[in-house]
Computed example of a mutant assay.
Amino acid sequence: MAEAPSKEQVLEVLKEVSDPEIGVNIVDLGLVYNVDIQDDGTVTVDMTLTAPGCPLHDTITRTAEMAIETLDGVKEARVNIVWSPPWTPDMLTDEGRRLLGF
């Protein structure tokens, strides 16, 4: 099996996953809280959404898992939605702020 990806590689592929309602990727929105990469090829990501009850919860979660699973060395991707800490616009990256016109 290929070597496990780096955290940077996981975050880079997650930049291809956008929140469809906002049109900005989940990394620059500040939604990704933690990336855990195991030697067995399991990658677990803790992330949040901009609002509880987001109707696209399952779509965003599955799209993120599928994106991670495209990386060499990934056997399985798991995305956990967490609500603590709650998301605020302060969590946007500089690129996220630029994309949203802040």
Results as ranks from 00 to 15, higher is better:
1 M>T: 14
1 M>L: 14
3 E>C: 08
4 A>P: 14
5 P>M: 01
7 K>H: 13
8 E>P: 09
8 E>S: 14
9 Q>R: 11
10 V>S: 02
11 L>F: 07
12 E>K: 14
13 V>H: 07
14 L>M: 00
16 E>A: 05
16 E>K: 08
17 V>Y: 04
18 S>N: 10
19 D>C: 07
21 E>P: 02
21 E>D: 14
21 E>K: 10
24 V>A: 03
25 N>V: 01
25 N>C: 09
27 V>T: 09
27 V>R: 06
28 D>H: 01
28 D>K: 01
28 D>R: 02
28 D>F: 01
29 L>M: 11
34 N>T: 13
34 N>Q: 15
35 V>D: 03
36 D>A: 13
38 Q>G: 04
38 Q>H: 12
38 Q>P: 10
40 D>M: 02
42 T>H: 12
44 T>K: 09
45 V>N: 04
45 V>K: 06
46 D>L: 12
47 M>D: 10
48 T>G: 05
51 A>P: 09
54 C>G: 07
54 C>K: 03
55 P>D: 07
59 T>Q: 13
60 I>N: 06
63 T>M: 03
65 E>L: 08
65 E>P: 03
66 M>L: 14
67 A>E: 08
67 A>H: 03
68 I>Q: 00
69 E>I: 02
69 E>R: 01
70 T>H: 08
70 T>S: 05
71 L>C: 03
72 D>F: 04
73 G>A: 10
75 K>C: 08
75 K>D: 15
75 K>R: 15
77 A>T: 02
78 R>D: 10
78 R>F: 04
78 R>V: 13
80 N>V: 03
83 W>K: 10
83 W>E: 07
85 P>F: 08
87 W>H: 11
87 W>A: 11
88 T>K: 12
90 D>Q: 14
90 D>I: 11
92 L>R: 05
92 L>W: 04
93 T>H: 01
94 D>I: 10
98 R>P: 02
98 R>A: 07
98 R>Q: 10
101 G>F: 09
101 G>A: 01
101 G>Y: 04
102 F>S: 06
